[in-house]
Structures are given as C-alpha cells and as structure tokens.
Design a protein around this nucleic acid. Structure first.
Lengths: 371, 371
DNA sequence: TTGAAAGCGCTAACAC
DNA sequence: GTGTTAGCGCTTTCAA
C-alpha cells in the first residue's frame, strides 16, 4: 500500500492534497447542530436563516456568527421535501412548425421535465408565430395572465420584447431569455451565443477555405425577424476582414426573400463574377445551397447556420462547407434548468452565459444532431 | 419538399402533445397511497418495491399490480434523505503535471463534487504517470485496497487496463472509463469520442483548406502511450481520403519523439517536398507548429488536438489551422455524474456515450477554454 | 408475514 | 421572541 503510493510523483501529491479539501466534504452540519451550538431552538435558527424576523438581536447575532463560521449550507433536499411547493414555469418559443430551427428546443424542455420530475416544477410551453411580432406580444399577455413564477423565452422581436419585459418585472415574474440578447435589466439571465463572434468564426472559416476573391453576406427574410441580430453577425464578419492585413477583396451584402430568391441571387452573382465565398446569416442556408447546386456554381464556398436536415444534407454533398451550430436545445435546457434550480434551491443564475460556437462539417455533424 | 414539410408538422405536433403529458405531471403517488389502495401497510409496499421478501404472494401480487398500473416512481430525494448513506468514488487520472492535457479533468471532478455536496458522495482523485504503465497498475491496486463503491478512470494502457478490470469486477466495484475505450464487458460505461471519426474530421478539415499536395499523419511519442488509440485516428483519416474520388496525392506517415524531433522532421520534409498538410494525432501539436514556424514552412496546413495554451497560441498566430477539442473536462464530469447518480438514484448508465467532436479555430477557442 | 413507529433535515403552525 | 411539534416520503427497526 505504502509502496504503491510512492510510485506517484511528489508534485502530484501536492495537487491531490489541495484537491481533497474539496472532495472530503468535511463535516455536515444540520440546523439542529447549529441550534445546540447557539443554545437556541431549531425554530430560531430557521428564522435567522430565512430572515423571518421575530428574533432577539442577541440570539440573531449568536446564530449568524456560527452560521458564518462553519459556512453552513442547509440541506436543500430536505427543504424541498418539506415545503412540497410546486413552481410554475412557462416557456415561450417560436412555433417549430413555422420554423424547424426551434424543434430541438422542445427536446431540451422535455429533458428538464424528466430530470426534475421529483421536484415540484410544472412547466408549460407555448408558441408564437416567428413572422408576426403581434403574436409574440399576445402570447406574453396570455402567460402573464397565468401568473407563473418564472418564464423562459426567445425574444425574437427586440422592441416588443423590451416592452413586455417591463410588465413581467412589474408582476414580479422572473424572466430568462435565450437565443437573442435584448440587454434589458429586467431579464434575469440570457443564454446564447456571441453573435458578433459567430460572424468572425464564419469569416475565419471562409478565409481558411479560400484566400482570394470577393465575399458576400446574405441575409434571408430579414424583414420577418428583428434585423438587430443579423447585423451583429455581419459586424463580426466584417471586423475579421478589416483586421486582415493586405486583404484586397470586397465584402459585399445581399438581401434575399423567399419569394424573389432566384431572381435576385442570379442578378447578384452576375454582378459579382469574382465572388468565391458566401456567408448566410440564418438557418435558411440550404436555400442558397440549393441554388448554387442547381446552377452549378461549384467554386463558391458556403458557410451558414444550424443543423436542419436540409442543411446537413448539403453539408454531406459538399455544397455547404461549414455550418455554425447555435445549439438551441442546450440553450433551452440550460435556461430552464437555471430557472428551476433558482426556484427550488435558490441557486444563483448568471446574468449571461455564452455557449461555445460549434463548427460543423460533414464529418462531425451526426453526434450534434443526436444529442 | 412538400412531403417533408408535412412530416415535420405532424411530428412536431406529436412532440408537443407528448410533451404536455410530461409537463402536467398528473398525480404524484406516494407509498402511502399505494399502501391504502392495496389495503396493506407502507412497510409491505416497501418490501415489495425492494424485493426484500417476507411478503405473502397475495399481498405481493396486489401491490405489484398497482405499482405497474400507476407507473409508480418513488421519490428518490426522500429515499436519499432517509438512508443518509455515503458512497465512495475514486477517480484515477494521468498526472496533469506530466501532461497538461489532463488539467481540465480535475476541474470537471470539482464541479461534480460541488453539485453533489448535499448528497453523500465522497470523491477521491489519484494520479498515475502517463509514461509508465506500471504506475497505472500500481495506482489501481491502491484503489482496490480502498474498496470504493465505484471508480472512474482513463485507461491509457490498453492491455494493463483490461487485466485490472477483471480485478474490479471480482471485487464488485463498478468501473467507468473515459477518454479511451478498452471495450471490456467489465466496464459499466465509457465516455469519450469516436477516434476513427475524429480522424475523419481532421481529414475533412485539411481537405477544406487545401485540395492539392501530399498529406502526413504525425504520431508523437507513440511508444509512451498505447498506440491502439492513435491508430484509430489514423485509420479514420485514411478512410476519408480513400473514399475521395480522383484523389491523386499521398497520405504519408511520420513517427516522432521529443528527443530526435527536429532531425527526423527536417529529413521527412526534405523527402516530401509536395507536402501541404500535416495531421498530428496528439495534443503535442504545438511542437510541430513551433518547428514549422521556426523553419518558415508557411504553406503547410496543420490540424491537431486539444486546447493546450501552447496550441491555442499557435492557432491565433495561424501556424495551426484547426484543433480538435476532445473535451476532457466534460468527459470526466459526465462520467462521474453518471456514477454518482447511479449510486444515489439507481439511474441507468449508458454503456457508451460519444461526445461531439468539437472543431476549433482562432475565433471560437475562447469559450471552449473558459468552460 | 405484517403493521406501527421512529427518524432523516427542514419548515411552519402553534403555543407560551 | 421563542421553543415545541407535526409532518414532507421514504427506510428501517421492532413488535406482534
């Protein structure tokens, strides 16, 4: 036994030691222990912990001191077992039928529901039409009437969301956002990606694939969604090339709608024969890929967003070079879990959590989709 | 297209519907409810649930029927609160001082320790020397003498690990592995990446960056670690180019040691003037990057492994094009959490979990390192 | 073979 | 103000 321990190098022992401070989990105190130490009853300790008042200053002081001294952490499991309260959380998503991008979010919600099935958490999901800002506002009204404890939503419409957020704050309903950051003090937490940086990632990818020729940023259906977020990606994309020394090509811009798609894109490509790369700022990347494939533009590199089936198909045939995965499922999962744990265990929620920007090519797509 | 949309719609509705069944969380039954329904006492119900015997057939049958009928799920929280048992898990890692690749694993362990601090889980970490298989075997002996309930380890040495696994099985100690899959029935679970596929990802990346010229697979310090795992990456890498139609270049191989590094690599590059791409199969990618930078081989593309500081620095200066992130922290975190939840809540552990293969370039590296 | 009862750590209602 | 007490859902004696 001792012999074997010597095999480990001495520097390791140091790390191991400091690590164990965490791992050993010293002594576990209960409120009964505290009560005894302070010479008061459990009830008084509880009152101090929850600041319910009705405690003499002397008692309060004694208890607080001990609490701090031993860094008391109440057994949250027991607390939850007792209170047996059910919390109500509403989730508001763009309708996955209108835009399949949101399908994984439903899975993310379900996972939280399963994991937390033993705690009193009631989760209700509703959808709004991602092409209509009014639908978003209306859905929020319904939720507010339900008076849940907390709400998780994707604030697709910047202006409308900021207004609605005020109502939530007035009603004392906690709101977390994901996917889009509306930068309001009224939101408890935002889970998403750094869109500016994600534009830079796209730029770097296209620059890796081809070093020469003009590039184009393509926005699709910009009028439906709030353009603020597409512009962030565009800013990031441009910033990358601005920083490139001796870069002699143009970064162009092209706005498309699903209606006049072919016409406008055909004209655009004719106008810019030196184009070698396209960056699509939405999950509709497959539309551009379809077009390039059909019209035999094999030399144009393409980077876009999201693991829709259509996009992944193009990834595998080679008409899309890279996709950026925004991980909608994980965003919803984390956002919801944070809220639930905050309600149940009074856990702190970070004001902002930016998930990694996943780069996907034909070879690593599958595990991302499975998850 | 139309067809596809219809599939989407209906499946989405289905998802939503089944989701609500979950979310509403119908009625929560307790063993008391069951006892009343069956006309027996809580004790009897408990005996049936845990198959502790000493129950008459009639009573057993009645209870079992009801249990099935209502799909009873005991409140695991309450169970844990009562039993108040502490479980003991050992973690065995290669010494992070010998190889910084393993540093994030310690963070992963600490995270689990923090999250599970309210449950009775005692976690102890020890290290072995990744260059010495004997150190691995010895460390396992020490652990076996400690008789923990479960063990999480990185079985760097294929043969030795398979032997040691037998001992664990005989001792009734649950073992999960991560990082390397030794494919033994004696291991409960493996968390890691598909190494073959990760070789393919590297191949695709290099092919994206440059379509022409010879490629080289570089193994570093192959004799120290078990070559099985490097070979998997190599196989994957080669398979990609084998499937490429009209690919007219060579995929070469080069084995390096830290001692004669410069000499051998210089000779290799001289022998292969058409080389445009290098794939390094280990986290020592920065050694090759250093070399290329020093000797001004700016036209050679480089893909390697892991977010060591040295590697990321080269990523940002451009001497490494892409890194593949094996996510050691997440591997450890998940492996350990699975074990803990299995012990505490009798949760099923998947036999194998393959994490996504993360592609990293200069622009998305930061959030991966922060996590 | 069974039921009754105590108790895990915490909360909250209720006396004093 | 403060202590006491009755549970939350489950496990585990201990009698019967």
């Amino acid at each position: 036994m001792l012999e074997h321990k010597n095999v480990l190098c001495s520097s390791t022992k140091l790390q191991l030691k400091s690590f164990n401070i965490f791992a050993v989990m010293i002594k576990k105190y209960t409120i009964r222990d505290i009560a005894e130490m302070a010479g008061v009853s459990k009830g008084t300790v509880d009152r101090v912990i929850h600041k319910r008042g009705k405690v003499s200053e002397t008692a309060a002081k004694k208890v607080t001191t001990i609490l701090k001294e031993i860094d008391f952490k109440p057994n949250l499991i027991a607390r939850n077992l007792k209170t047996n309260k059910t919390y109500h959380i509403c989730v508001l998503l763009p309708d996955p039928i209108k835009d399949p991008y949101w399908i994984p979010c439903v899975k993310g919600v379900n996972e939280v529901v399963l994991e937390l099935s033993h705690f009193g958490i009631k989760i209700e999901t509703s959808f709004f039409d991602p092409t209509k800002s009014k639908s978003f506002t209306a859905a929020n009204l319904v939720i507010q009437n339900n008076a849940p404890d907390a709400v998780l939503l994707a604030p697709l419409f910047f202006k409308e969301a900021r207004i609605v957020m005020q109502d939530y704050e007035n009603l004392g309903i906690i709101v977390s956002t994901f996917n889009n950051d509306i930068e309001s003090k009224a939101v408890k937490s935002f889970i998403g990606q750094d869109l500016f940086q994600s534009g830079r990632v796209a730029a770097k990818l296209l620059h890796s694939v081809s070093k020469t020729g003009d590039l184009a940023i393509v926005h699709i259906n910009e009028q439906y969604e709030n353009a603020v977020f597409m512009q962030e990606k565009e800013r990031g994309f441009k910033s990358f090339f601005n920083e490139l020394v001796s870069f002699n090509y143009s970064v162009l811009q092209c706005k498309l709608n699903q209606e006049d798609f072919e016409l406008v894109l055909t004209a655009f490509l004719k106008d810019h024969p030196n184009l070698t790369s396209i960056f699509v700022t939405t999950s509709k990347t497959y539309l551009v890929a379809d077009f390039l494939e059909k019209n035999n533009h094999k030399t144009i590199s393409l980077v876009g967003y999201d693991l829709l089936n259509e996009n992944v198909t193009h990834l595998k045939t080679g008409s899309i070079d890279f996709l950026i995965h925004q991980n909608p499922k994980e965003q919803t999962y984390i956002g919801l879990k944070f809220l639930a744990e905050h309600l149940l265990f009074e856990k702190e929620i970070p004001k902002e959590l930016l998930l990694p920007i996943d780069i996907v090519n034909s070879e690593n797509a599958t595990p991302f989709m499975r998850r």
